[in-house]
Amino acid sequence: MGSDFYTAFILPYAGIIIKICRAYTNSQDDFEDYYQEVCLQIWRSRNNFKENSQWSTWIYKISLNVCLTYLKKKNSQHQQFASDTLPDEVVADSQAFSGDAINLLYDAIRHLSETDRALILLYLEEKSYLEIAEIIGSNPNNIGVRITRIKQRLNKILNMESN
C-alpha cells in the first residue's frame, strides 16, 4: 500500500474503522487484524469509489462489509481487550476509549447480532435512518423500530452488567 494513500485517505477516517472493528472483535489481536483487513480492502477497492456518495460513507460501507465477511483465524486467543478487563493498565488501544462506560457499552454491543451491531454503530455515529438504510441495504421504515429494540436490549445488558 502506498503510504501516501494511507495517510491521505484512510488515516483521517481511522476513527470510523476503529469504532466498527472494535464492535466485531473480542481481543486486541483480532481488532488489529480486522483493522488491517479493512485498510487493505479500502485500498484495493479505491477505484470503485463513485463520487456520488461521501468518502466517509464509503469507509463505513467497506468497513462493515469487511467485518461481516472476515474469516477469523483458527485457534485465535480469545483474550479480551485490555481496556475491557484491566482499565488501569496502560495499553496503546485503551487510550482510544476514554472511560469504563464506553468499554461496557462495547461489551454490550458485542452481545448483539452482526446486523444489529452495524445498525447501532451507524445510529450512534448519528447517521440518518435513510443513510443507515442505504449502507445496510434495508427499508428505512424498519430502521427506527429495530433501533428502538436494540437500544432497549443494550440498556438491559448494561443494567445487568452494572448490577
Binding site: A14, G15, I18, D93, Q95, I102
Partner: peptide
C-alpha cells in the same frame, strides 16, 4: 463522551 476527542483514537 467516550469519543469526545476522536483524534485521540490510536490506529494500530
Amino acid at each position: 463522551q467516550g469519543f469526545i476527542d476522536e483524534k485521540a483514537l490510536v490506529a494500530p
